[in-house]
Design a protein around this nucleic acid. Structure first.
Lengths: 214, 214
DNA sequence: CGCTGGATTGAGTCCGGTCAAGCCTTGTGG
DNA sequence: CCACAAGGCTTGACCGGACTCAATCCAGCG
């Protein structure tokens, strides 16, 4: 991990980014590196600049649940009280902007900042609720279909490249790696998606995919 | 459903309640009645005064997921953008204090209110994340154990009475009613909990229950 | 007392997990 | 440039936990 002050200006989006630029630190993490750990003291908020990040939670016996995947522009570390409840790891080499909670509090009272962070928290909650519905009530096939649709939706383009491997997909969907693999094969068999490599695909039949995602 | 202005003072807790008292409406709902519906315009925030409430989400084919159960002091309707993503229904006869979003916005700038609502949103997010972990990675037995422990924990007392039936438990845990029933029977068999009636129980062996909840 | 709706129990099935090979891609060193 | 090793992905055979369907059971109540 390396770090540097970030006098460079933000290429991307809205208020929060500007703010985090002003007070934030820019850090880079190598693929697989831990950005913060479960049960550590939670005094930082993170914003993804480039690359992708996963948040994970471990059960005592090693079972793993992935909370969510984060892409440039997303904020991580909001969901938390005094202790991080998930750990965050770099899915690929990535750059993250980091701000101390205390700095934010100092800047608070500006109001717009509070509002922005609250908005972000609500978005996070909505995504978590969607995830919840999926884990509770969808079949393996529906889960994988939903997942691929969600990713394709985020990217927007025809060709999608997955930043995560099968094991990460499995731990996100509450399945095993083998089941994920089988469902992917099955979706390919029905000509709904087409995988060039195991991490590169395109949706060939959107309506069918949407129907399956339920 | 009946409603009345609430000049009566709050018996319970902190800042938010006082605020909602000042601008809120007091409404009572009969058991099973809908408090608000999925996909309706979300312009209200609700606070449970007495009784219990569930939030539910329906898949097109009728599968149901319960988001959470809410008890006196809890706030419902935060998680939402312009449209309610869950519907809320009264588990038992209950009283709810209701405030228009717009009224709150008008009162905003007081700061403390914003902060309180944000806090509530974060607590909601934490509960949802815990729920997520359970749905994704726990066995039927662990789910039921976790659930009973959670409820007992909330109540605090030795004897716990469940405000919800087996179907609601099942839809919360992502199981069927039969499986829930079997697991309850099994937990009773191992002398971990003891049910007086199907909705009335006490924990007889806390450590064992905690171990099972994982 | 019988009715009604929720809860329990049982038998059988199936989806997804487990275990075990193989395959394919990637990267490294000869 | 090829050989080989390593890791990730896929595939197959089998197993088991949770679901399905159906039959009771039981408590509350008219």
């Amino acid at each position: 991990m390396t770090l540097a002050y970030s006098p460079d200006t933000a290429p991307t989006a809205p208020p929060i980014d500007n703010l985090m630029d002003r007070v934030g630190l820019r850090m880079t993490f190598a693929k697989g590196e831990e950005i913060f750990g479960q049960d550590e003291e939670a005094d930082m908020i993170h914003s993804v600049v480039s690359g992708a990040v996963r948040t994970t939670r471990l059960l005592s016996d090693g079972r793993r649940q992935i909370g969510d995947f984060y892409y440039p522009g997303d904020i991580i570390g909001l969901e938390i009280g005094d202790i991080y409840r998930f750990s965050a790891e770099a899915l690929s080499d990535c750059v993250v902007r980091v701000v101390k909670r205390s700095s934010l509090n100092a800047l608070s009272g500006e109001g717009s900042l509070d509002r922005t962070l609250w908005e972000a928290t609500r978005r996070e909650l909505e995504r978590t609720q969607e995830h919840l519905l999926m884990l509770g009530r969808k079949s393996a096939c529906e889960k994988v279909a939903s997942f691929l649709m969600d990713v394709a939706h985020r990217v927007g383009s025809e060709d999608v490249s997955l930043p995560m491997g099968r094991q990460d997909m499995a731990d996100y969907l509450g399945l095993t790696i083998e089941t994920v693999s089988r469902m992917v094969t099955q979706l390919q068999g029905s000509r709904i998606v087409e995988f060039a490599t195991s991490r590169q695909f395109r949706v060939t039949r959107w309506p069918a995919l949407e129907r399956l995602a339920a």
